[in-house]
Amino acid sequence: MNVILHIIARDLRLALRRPADLASVLFFFIIVASLFPLGVGPETDLLRRLAPGVLWVGALLATMLSLPRMFADDFYDGALEQLALAPYPLGFVVLGKTLAHWLVSGLPLAILAPLLGLQFDLPGDTLLILAGSILLGTPALSGIGAIGAALTLGLRGGGVLLSLLVLPLYIPVLIFGAGAVDASMSGISPNAHLFLLAALTVGGVAFAPWAAAAALKIALE
């Protein structure tokens, strides 16, 4: 258990030493989400209809943007070898790194999302559901992303391959995430969607690290 906390602390410290990486993810999200209202024009009905999908796709792409770096730095400077040789399963390391990735991508995105939702004229309670759904869904994105990042580690042009591998697997999260926001807007309870999102997150965070650890071992051979 301590191992996971140590990895999270280490990765957070490293992320804070390079705030530009963190900022680029957030600014990407802000810009993508702002382009739509500017492009579509001030038609509030249309914008409100678009909002769940646009904001969720934006959050998804922003999360993807930071995935290639998840293991790459550790791989190239040899730290990953040392982690693989530590006296505990590599899956714990990956779990720690997944949670750290979420803390610097998913969590800030969830905090930012309601502000961007204002551009789409979303009502107050829907903004809360939007933040909640992103908060619930992004750990699954980090978990699934870890598998893709581990599989494409050390490949030339791995970034494009990573998107092709990971984006199809993100579809369920997108459907239930955007579905929750949609439901709340049309006055239906979003709970069903949120429960399914939570299930995806629990499944993703519990199982993905072990698959990613297996992929990392192959990359290190």
Binding site: Y76, E81, L85
Partner: peptide, 12 residues
């Protein structure tokens, strides 16, 4: 194990 690479973090 001490490999070719130093396994140290440049930012730390």
């Amino acid at each position: 194990y001490l490999g070719h690479q130093n396994a140290i973090k440049e930012d730390l």
